[in-house]
Simulated scan of single mutants.
Amino acid sequence: MRNTTGAHGTALGSFLQARRSRLRPEDVGLDSDGKHRRVAGLRREEVAQLARVSVNYYTRLEQGQNRSASPEVLDALAGALRLSQDERAHLHDLAGSAGTQARPEPVAEHVRPAVARMISVYEQGPAVVLGRQLNILAWNELARILFSGHIDLGATETLPNLAELVFLEPGARRLYPVWTDEAHELAGYLRVMVGRYPGDPALSALVSKLSDNSPEFAKIWSGHVVWDKTHGTRYLHHPEVDRLTLSFETLRLPDSPDQCVILYQAEAGSESERALRSLLAGRNGQNG
């Protein structure tokens, strides 16, 4: 199995290196020296200057030779590298797992029956409960209808893994008309979970499987994309009703913070709302 996080410190160093490589001196208020740069992005000494740490300290941190960094230093590095809120949180997760800080241990995931019932009666749009390993832990009828429009879900009662569907099932590219966006967002969310649970063997196995079987995933993963978006717009397609435009909201369960309840809905009075009603009515009619 491929080591997806590397030795202690390597994941942190790889993330820092990836983030400095995307910045130019002018992006952070530094004057370019006009010399040709052998590699893209900021130099280590420029990051150290911006974060007000020594070059030697930053170099050791990036190379995995230094496994400790205070929250203040991490925040300074986040500012120097212009990290987003999600990236900043990921940086702290990586530093915690590389050092001696206690880290959360993965536990088996189960959906509370009350949450599963809430999802099952939601009819405004698709609804899913997503676990930290991107397993779909529960979904409602509209979600099942939309997925089965392009993907053979089989007769098994086991719910699918969303990342495996998106990257390994050919039908996913028809289900998601803007497939590239979905792919980047899922890989970014998986990166967040790997940073939070670096010792989770199921997460490591999933990343290895996707890397070995999806060149697109391997390319996105190498860029250290981090994404934990809580709301937005999703475009879906179903062969019976064509394209759907849905907004979504992500809710965290207080007693299971790594489980996400994702609720989709169409704008009131829109073609997408009428299409969802048609799909649900048609399936209810078949079942009746």
Rank of each mutant, 00 (worst) to 15 (best):
H237I: 08
P257V: 14
L236I: 03
L165C: 07
Y235E: 02
E164W: 09
G223P: 06
I262V: 14
P239E: 08
L279N: 06
R191A: 14
G232E: 02
Y189E: 14
E182R: 09
D258E: 05
L168E: 06
L246M: 00
V261P: 02
T245L: 09
I145S: 07
L206E: 02
S214N: 03
R196L: 14
D242Y: 04
L153I: 07
Y235T: 12
E157N: 13
T180Y: 05
L206Y: 00
N140D: 11
A143K: 03
Q259V: 07
W221D: 11
V226Y: 03
P198K: 07
L142H: 05
E271W: 06
K229N: 13
V225I: 11
N161C: 00
A163S: 07
E141R: 15
L162F: 13
S208W: 05
A163Y: 01
V226A: 03
V225L: 13
M193E: 15
S278P: 00
K219T: 15
G269M: 04
H231V: 08
A266R: 01
H238W: 04
Y235L: 08
T158C: 11
H238E: 05
L165I: 15
L175A: 03
P198F: 09
G199Q: 11
V166A: 12
E240H: 14
A172S: 10
L253T: 00
L162M: 11
L175Q: 04
S247F: 04
I262M: 12
L279R: 10
N161V: 01
D258T: 12
S204Y: 01
G154F: 10
G149Y: 13
P257F: 11
P170K: 11
R234F: 06
L253F: 03
E169K: 11
A218K: 06
A268G: 07
A163T: 02
K229S: 07
D242F: 04
G232S: 02
V166M: 05
L210N: 02
D152F: 10
I151M: 10
R196Y: 03
